[in-house]
Every structure is written in structure tokens, then in C-alpha cells.
């Protein structure tokens, strides 16, 4: 008898073996139990490269069943090429359905955006994380970073916010604004825009963060306090578009991105945009 006889040689479209999925689920449960804490996990290599969503993909694959409906977006766009690639990997290996409508999806995997609407208590949001460490800008040594989180010693972060405000007059953090979760851990909110930050606070949906390259999973359970780090007398500012409107749907209530000429604006959430326009 050869060892290979013990393996089922059926060609599987599975991207991860069952033990891996179990490991990932356990890590995810630990993350949900300790909101904001970065849980280390044995991140597997995926058919997409490190830095391209391998962490988000692992969480999705570990969590999704064939009766799920999956939405995948990149920069808010269902049709972004990386989103398309990830979506077809998920649907072909899990048998789940796909949809571009957030309220129809049971799980949304996203890079850099939260859908403008449609997420409720039945939704899971999986965010792809390039760098899970919010303190990376103020400290490089990993031993010291571990201590800072363990002791909730975020003073160096506060000093950098103070210096930012002093030097620039405003806090100039762009996307991935550091937030205090459940009053305990500071997290990197991936590069989602500040526009999306308020929707993390007390959200009805579960948010899972997957960092495949750095091999960390963290979570914000539903109805959890999420506070962007800022001084009480320095208001948190979302991106300002000076009242611009989307060239397609005419609305200004969503996060807008501009063309290089910076006079034409478009909704970043393409599905939300499409639903504002009368069906043609």
C-alpha cells in the first residue's frame, strides 16, 4: 500500500483543505471574542498573490457555504478585475451564488470600501488588509509593538496625531484611520476611506479583517464601539467633495472618486450608483 492510496485523488476545486478551514474558523472565532485583537493564524498560500487578498479569501472560503450569496468588490466596484478574479474563485470552489447587491449578499468581501448600504444583521463583511498594524508608522520593532498593544500603551500614536495637527493644522491621516475598538485595541481599518469609518461604529453587521501576508485576523463584532482616534476638540473629518455630484446618478450622498481632471466625479460604490438611476 502506498501513502498516496490514502488520499482521495478526486480532482478537487477546493483551494484549501478542510483542516486549514477549521484553523481559520478557530482564529476568526478568537478574533470575534476579542474585538480588535490581531489573532495570528497559519495563513495558507492562495491562487492570488500575497498582498492581493489572500487573507480575505481565506476567511471567505472558511466561512462560506454553498447556500451563501457572495458579493466581491474592489474600491467599491464589483467589476474591478481583482474583484472579478476573487469572486469567480470563491463561487467555483464553494458553489455559492454571486450578487452585486449588498442587501442580497450574505457575505461581502471587499478591498478598501464598505458598501454604502444594504448590510444588516445577517451580513458578514470581510475586508482585505494589506498591513494590519496600525502603529507601524510610529514603531518598527515587533517585540515593542506587541508590548504596546498588550499594555494598551498607545501614547506614541497620540503624539504623532498631536504633531500632525500642529504641523499641518489638520490631522492628515488619509485612509485606514486608526480606531479604538471596544475601548481596548487600536486597529488599522485597512485603507477604507474616512467616509466609511462612522459606519463601523455600532454596525449591525460583523466585520472580519483578513491579512494573509502578515498572517493575522481581527474582527469587529456587531454593535461594537469603534472610535476614530482624535482629540475631543478636533472633529474627525471625512473626505470632503465640496458638494460635487456623481456624473452618472447625480447624487452626492455617497463616497465619490474623481477623474484626473478633478471636475468629473463618480460614485465609488458602482452598485449603489446603479440603483439610484432608473433602470434602463
Amino acid at each position: 500500500m502506498a501513502l498516496s492510496d490514502l488520499i482521495d485523488h478526486r480532482e478537487s476545486s477546493e483551494l484549501l483543505d478542510e483542516f486549514a478551514k477549521r484553523e481559520i474558523r478557530r482564529a476568526t472565532l478568537a478574533a470575534v471574542a476579542i474585538p480588535g485583537y490581531q489573532v495570528p493564524f497559519g495563513s495558507r498560500e492562495m491562487p492570488v498573490a500575497r498582498g492581493w487578498g489572500s487573507g480575505g479569501l481565506q476567511i471567505t472560503l472558511a466561512v462560506v457555504h454553498d447556500d451563501d450569496t457572495v458579493k466581491v468588490i474592489d474600491q467599491g466596484d464589483d467589476d474591478g478585475v481583482n474583484a472579478v478574479n476573487l469572486r469567480r474563485l470563491v463561487t467555483s470552489s464553494t458553489g455559492a451564488d454571486e450578487s452585486s447587491i449588498a442587501s442580497e449578499a450574505t457575505l461581502t468581501q471587499s478591498r478598501h470600501r464598505i458598501p454604502e448600504d444594504g448590510l444588516d444583521e445577517t451580513s458578514i463583511l470581510v475586508l482585505q488588509v494589506p498591513v494590519p498594524e496600525p502603529l507601524r508608522g510610529v514603531e518598527r520593532d515587533m517585540r515593542e509593538l506587541a508590548r504596546m498593544h498588550a499594555e494598551a500603551d498607545y501614547s506614541r500614536m497620540w503624539v504623532s496625531l498631536y504633531e500632525d495637527k500642529v504641523r499641518n493644522g489638520v490631522i492628515t491621516q488619509t485612509t485606514g484611520y486608526p480606531c479604538l475598538v471596544n475601548g481596548r485595541y487600536v486597529v488599522a481599518t485597512t485603507p477604507i476611506p474616512r467616509w466609511d469609518i462612522p459606519r463601523l461604529h455600532n454596525a449591525p453587521f460583523l466585520t472580519l479583517f483578513g491579512a494573509g501576508r502578515e498572517k493575522r485576523i481581527y474582527a469587529i463584532p456587531p454593535y461594537t464601539m469603534v472610535e476614530p482616534l482624535t482629540f475631543e476638540d478636533v472633529p474627525f473629518e471625512v473626505e470632503n467633495s465640496d458638494g460635487a455630484c456623481c456624473a452618472l446618478c447625480g447624487k452626492s450622498e455617497s463616497f465619490l472618486v474623481s477623474l484626473p481632471n478633478s471636475t468629473t466625479w463618480l460614485c465609488s460604490d458602482t452598485d449603489w450608483c446603479a440603483r439610484q438611476r432608473p433602470a434602463t
Binding site: A49, R50, G51, W52, S54, D74, Q75, G76, G80, N82, R111, H112, R113, P130, N168, G169, V170, T172, Q173, T174, T175, G176, P191, I192, P193, R194, R213, E237, E239, N240, S241, F255, L256, V257, S258, S262, S268
Partner: peptide, 27 residues
Amino acid sequence: DSAGFLEHLKLPHYVTFRSMIERKLAV
């Protein structure tokens, strides 16, 4: 890890870029 992260820079980053421009204008 190294090559993947380096090459991920090719992915769209226009949400972040838009946010950066906004902060520069704010300053």
C-alpha cells in the same frame, strides 16, 4: 510575501489616492 506585496501596488488604489488629494487640499 515580498514579491506579492511589492506587486500589489499595481492594484487600483484610487480610493486612497482620492483621500490623499483631499487631505492636501484641506491642509
